[in-house]
């Protein structure tokens, strides 16, 4: 008796909360906030979709700002394999990885102040962190300016214009979206200029 009711209740609630609810929210979300519901896709100057505003991607060239290291997937930045390193505070592997990242960053940024910001040595929880802190962005200004052949002040100005403050003034931390920053660099300073510095 109880099992029969259980089956009926299961099927009824399954249809209501497992099908009707998500499908209705999908319809409403796509209607009210189509761009955001579809992943906040971002385009370059030519209108080509190059990623999502919300999802970090790899940047290695000197004329672009670089994100934090990523533990998503084997190569990092795999947007279909999110996750952190899960290495603990006494992990030898973690110490070695951080030391290697520090050495590489010091080599790539000879004109930047020491020490390297801790944040650029650590992987995020999602492995897809789209942001870096304003400090970590400013730390890279000298390298980017040199590679693009423009003044550091000009680059710094673009960085500062894209800093997002804490939400409502106290939630979370100030941040700069790396993809949006690099798109702004290409837009304001010219893509060709950047590529000439390669």
């Amino acid at each position: 008796m109880a099992l029969l009711v259980a089956l009926r209740v299961s099927l009824v609630t399954l249809v209501l909360t497992g099908l009707a609810y998500p499908l209705a929210v999908t319809g409403l979300g796509q209607l009210l906030f189509p761009a955001r519901a579809s992943g906040s896709l971002a385009s370059d100057l030519q209108g080509r979709i190059v990623g999502s505003e919300r999802i970090g991607q790899a940047f290695t060239r000197p004329y672009y700002f670089h994100p934090r290291p990523s533990a998503a997937g084997d190569q990092g930045w795999d947007a279909a394999a999110s996750g952190g390193s899960n290495l603990g505070p006494t992990s030898e592997k973690l110490r070695e990885r951080i030391a290697a990242a520090r050495a590489r960053l010091e080599l790539e940024n000879p004109d930047a102040p020491r020490p390297v910001p801790e944040e650029l040595l650590t992987t995020s929880a999602s492995g897809l962190d789209p942001d870096i802190s304003p400090q970590a962005a400013r730390w890279q200004v000298a390298r980017v300016a040199k590679a693009r052949g423009v003044s550091a002040a000009r680059v710094r100005q673009i960085v500062d214009s894209l800093v997002e403050d804490r939400d409502l003034g106290f939630l979370g931390e100030p941040r700069v979206d790396v993809l949006m920053l690099n798109l702004a660099m290409d837009r304001d300073l010219g893509r060709e200029l950047g590529q000439a510095g390669e």
């Binding site: 934090r68 952190g84 390193s85 899960n86 290495l87 505070p89 973690l94 910001p117 801790e118 944040e119 650590t122 992987t123 995020s124 929880a125 999602s126 962190d129 942001d131 870096i132 802190s133 979370g172 931390e173 941040r175």
Partner: peptide
């Protein structure tokens, strides 16, 4: 900024 391994910048 504290221990940032495994933490998101925005948080």
């Amino acid at each position: 900024l504290g221990n940032l391994e495994g933490k998101e910048t925005r948080f």
